[in-house]
Design a protein around this nucleic acid. Structure first.
Lengths: 228, 228
DNA sequence: TTCCGTATGATTGTTGACAGCGCGTTGGCA
DNA sequence: TGCCAACGCGCTGTCAACAATCATACGGAA
């Protein structure tokens, strides 16, 4: 049986996966604010399914750390405090350094070139002044970086951390001052990979983390009053 | 189902958690061999609970990567091939390097001293020729290393990777040749942390990974016939 | 003999209902 | 007025039953 064209993998996503994806998106982009309570029955009714699949989806997000569940009370969207922001970026950088290390010692050139294309996208978005497009390309850059390392576990871990990062970024809401610097950082990372400069890459990834933390934490300080 | 336990510490752990822990232990120590099918109804009957909690526990382990679920077919204990072993150790080392980096720049001395205690335990077990005790202390060392970094996310990720490591180690089953070298490696890592020698620590963690991979992959080669 | 269609059995996916726990509120009492 | 206890409500935890789906085995036709 020979198919000249790929007949579409026709893999229907399971119901809980679909629900989880939808909830995850809503949490990531801030539609569901931190602290919000999610009620299984309400969501089930809203989606037209039973509580079972909803429960399963919620359980999944709980394990990802996006929700916290209190027995016999309810599940709530996780609140993110300053130490969480640090933790997220620490963990994310750890994963990206590992991925970068793998890339630096095989496939430098191709991976670097691929990543530079994402930097171009960021650059265009920056020139157009489209803040959300910059963030989008930013996320895509980091995701691609890890994806290129072809490590299932690193990819899975990173995906989780990336949605948490999105939650962090919602606090900034477009008030970036130095977007050109942000683009330059990514270009530096991509170039270090392209050239196989392992040590330089590690330094730049660490610096990228530190810069992001400075930006986020100062902003967090400013938003403190609205956090209650 | 009624719980007739009287005056236990309080059964605050949820039922699915207990089931998941039990299954996880059985998978980690090889009681449930890779490829084994788990049937919800059977487990439920065996434990005297309904399929609901069992399903939730299975779903949790699936997300951890210990089980693979095929729709309408069943869930099976994950098979681990050579690339998985590499991936597990790559990811685990990434986490431990991050944790080590945090420790090296604050709390060197205390953390190093604490870890050296675990090295002592390994040493004693090695002297006694107790293979499983060595592995136990080995795991405990790595867990403690990450725990000391006080990063919730790194800890959670690491815990998952550690159970997968246990699955890998089941293939060796006590045929270690150079256990003294194994102990020495851990001592070297602990000392590098104690002294705040960041670069040295990173090198030693990488070396530890490479050594483990050599051991495991050669053993894996030998076990290939039993893998069908 | 080989291939296709069908029947059957097993297992997961989904549903609605019931029970238990904790919080908030209300009512009574000092 | 202030405090305590009992009550009710909302929600999750758990359960048993039903539906959907896939793998396998079997039987018949080319």
């Amino acid at each position: 049986m020979k198919n000249r064209r790929v007949l579409e993998p026709i893999m229907q996503e399971s119901t809980p996966s679909l629900i989880a994806a939808q909830l995850r998106r809503n949490i990531a982009d801030g539609a569901l604010a931190p602290g919000t309570q999610l009620v299984e029955a309400d969501i089930a009714g809203e989606l037209g399914v039973s509580r079972g699949p909803v429960r399963e989806a919620i359980q999944r997000l709980t394990q990802e750390g996006l929700l916290v569940s209190i027995r016999n009370r309810g599940v709530f969207v996780s609140e993110i405090d300053e130490s969480d922001i640090r933790d997220i970026y620490e963990a994310r950088t750890a994963v990206e350094k590992a991925a970068g290390g793998i890339l630096a010692q095989r496939d430098h050139a191709r991976a670097g070139a691929e990543l530079l294309r994402f930097v171009e996208r960021m650059d265009k978005a920056s020139a157009a002044g489209d803040g959300s497009a910059i963030s989008e390309a930013d996320m895509a850059f980091h995701q691609k970086l890890v994806e290129l390392a072809a490590s299932p576990r690193l990819s899975r871990i990173h995906a989780t951390l990336l949605t948490e990062t999105r939650m962090c970024l919602n606090r900034l809401q477009g008030r970036f001052e130095d977007e050109s610097a942000r683009v330059a950082e990514h270009r530096g990372i991509a170039e270090a990979i392209r050239d196989g400069e392992r040590d330089l890459l590690m330094d730049r990834l660490d610096a990228h983390k530190d810069d992001a933390l400075v930006r986020l934490l100062s902003a967090h300080e400013g938003n403190k009053t609205t956090a209650s």
